[in-house]
Simulated scan of single mutants.
Amino acid sequence: MDHTTFPRTDRQVSRLGFGAMGFAGWFGSQPEADHIRALHYALDQGVNFIDTARAYGESEAILGRGLKQWSGPPPFVATKVEGLAGGPQWSTVVPVDRSLPKGQVTASCEASLRALGLDVIDCLQLHAYWPTWGVEGYWLDELRALKETGKVRAIGISVPDHRSDMVLPIVISGVIDSVQTVINIFDPIALENLVPLCQKHDVAVIARCILDEGGLTGFLTPETTFPPGDFRHGYFDDTVPRASYIAKVDALRRYVPEHASSLAALAIKFALWHPGVTTAITSMHEQRYAAINIAASSEPRLPEPVYKALMFRHRFIKAFMDVRNFADLDAVPDQPLSLD
């Protein structure tokens, strides 16, 4: 398992990270014991970066119980502040005081510490950040205060959708330590501007959706169905025709097995190719997924011509993070939005 230094800290983190959103049951329900077993398996294999969030149901609490049972070196734990604006904050700009009223950053951090059973959070991120909020404000003051008091080691933001370039100003400002953003074969845009600028300004990059919510593994068929409550219910069909999506995935099969053992391995190796990506997280809430993903990260690096072919010939950028998937249309405000 490759490791690298998390910028602006002295911590070494695994370049493949453990995504704990699956602990919320949004990819199907599994027993808590299975989640903890998968967590311990990944930690045993050298994965030591874990990403969760207040908004992920019981994820923090399950993770906390799993860490309490772990006797090895403490992993690097990143979580996210819970915004209070509901579904619309993931799909359209909302005023900062609607998502994060004064005191919410601090209150969310305190709740996370309790749920996780930790004295300090290694990286606290805003789960949604919109550039209209600026690069200064009470929300940043609260983040800085948590860092100064030792409750948080690093502070960052998460890009709410696929438009990674919209957070370039706050990266350049130097006020944050990390950015979490979508990076995958179908949506590599962050690799063009955001990642190089993060390298220049010593800001960590946490890549997410590296398997495109599982779509890049090739599991999706015309007959695949998802039960209500599964995060992927409607996810692959509301934005593009499923047949188009499957065709784009099938076009990647030419690289398997010559350059990767599977489509999933191809996607993971692509996400880890750029040295400016500090860590790339993927759901490992089941041990079988953890084993597959960890094995893929250990395969030989993609040849540069293959990486460039994937980067430029297979783009399929989609607005999956939209109101149809994340919010009731009636909840989207129709009044002019404040830019504060």
Rank of each mutant, 00 (worst) to 15 (best):
S91Q: 03
A128K: 12
E148W: 00
V152C: 05
I121W: 11
G156Y: 10
A111V: 03
W139T: 07
K147Q: 14
V120R: 14
K102I: 00
V167K: 13
Q104N: 04
L140R: 13
I172N: 09
V96Y: 00
D202S: 14
R153G: 07
D97G: 02
S91T: 09
E136D: 15
D212F: 11
P131S: 09
K151R: 14
Q199C: 13
S108K: 11
Q89G: 02
R144S: 06
H162P: 06
V159E: 11
L126Y: 05
S164C: 13
I176W: 09
L143R: 06
T106F: 01
I170R: 09
D212M: 13
C198I: 07
R98G: 00
K200R: 15
W133A: 00
V120I: 14
R114M: 08
A107R: 02
F186G: 01
S158P: 05
A154K: 12
V171L: 01
A85V: 02
W133I: 06
I172P: 04
L143Y: 05
S158G: 10
I121N: 08
K151Q: 08
R114W: 01
G87S: 08
G134M: 02
L100N: 00
V94T: 13
I210M: 06
A115V: 08
A204C: 13
P131C: 10
L211A: 00
P88M: 04
C198K: 13
D212C: 10
G156P: 15
D119K: 12
P131E: 07
A85D: 02
S108I: 03
L168G: 10
V93S: 08
L118Q: 11
K147H: 03
D97W: 02
L84K: 06
A115Q: 15
L197M: 14
H162G: 04
C109E: 11
F186K: 00
C109H: 13
K151P: 13
I176F: 08
H127E: 03
L194S: 11
A154F: 13
